[in-house]
Amino acid sequence: MPQTIGFDVYGTLVDPVEMGTHLEALIGDQAKEFGQLWHEKKVEYAFRRSLMQQYQDFSVCTLQALRYCMKVFKIDLSEQAQQALMAEFANLAAFNDVVPGLKSLKQQGHTLAAFSNGPEAAVHTLMGNAGVLPLLDDVISVDDIRIYKPSPRVYQYLMETTGSTVDNCWMVSGNPWDVIGAKAAGLKAAWIQRDPAKIFDPWDIEPDLVVNDLIEFSEQLTDF
């Protein structure tokens, strides 16, 4: 049975920690740690803004998280350098399994959408640069409803936008909090466990599938 599948973008289709490579010239061997903290902090800021009902788009969260990391690592970057780093988010590469995995899912007749906390225009550009856009049926952003995942309103919006229901709508994410949010809203969900050392949050809410990558997801989805 054809399914509607929403894919998280950062951490699922593309690797945001790859930003560390653009930091190497600026901060040397701390680049990887800086990139990881930057990613974690921007997600935290999005969560906090949702709880406070003080929405700003994800680019604001990202820039503020960058400035937080600059303070932590005691690095002074010019405004121009900060904006140059922000611009690199449009050039993140897709994980190697993404294109073949999406092609397989398209061949199976599923509807595929990028579903992100990022602004739609930015995600659209990113997906195009990563070579993923031609395989997607839609790019959907929480910016339209001004609240972030994992609010249940967000997953409801995914179903409304795609004309799907809890019976045929999946959320696929490399982030456990996203999977838990989707399951709590009634969707089916798959966790892409790209790092075997990563632990799924023990919330008594389990994913319908746990796979290593999108190729494995496309293979296992045939059982549903």
Rank of each mutant, 00 (worst) to 15 (best):
I5V: 08
I5S: 00
V9C: 04
T12Y: 02
L13F: 03
P16R: 03
M19P: 02
T21S: 13
A25P: 10
Q30L: 14
E33T: 13
F34M: 09
G35M: 10
E40D: 12
F47C: 04
F47A: 01
R48E: 07
S50W: 05
Q53W: 09
C61K: 01
L66P: 05
R67E: 11
V72M: 11
E79R: 05
A87D: 13
A90K: 15
A93P: 06
N96D: 15
D97V: 04
D97F: 00
G101Y: 03
L105S: 01
Q108D: 13
G109A: 08
H110S: 07
L112N: 00
A113Q: 10
A113P: 11
A122H: 08
N129W: 13
P134N: 11
D137Q: 14
V142Y: 07
K149D: 03
S151G: 09
R153P: 15
V154N: 03
E160Q: 14
S164I: 05
C169N: 00
M171D: 04
V172L: 01
S173C: 06
S173K: 00
P176F: 02
V179F: 00
I180L: 07
I180M: 07
A182D: 02
A182S: 08
K188S: 05
W191S: 01
W191T: 01
W191H: 02
I192S: 02
Q193E: 06
D195K: 08
D195S: 14
K198A: 14
D208C: 10
L209I: 11
L214N: 01
L214T: 04
L221D: 08
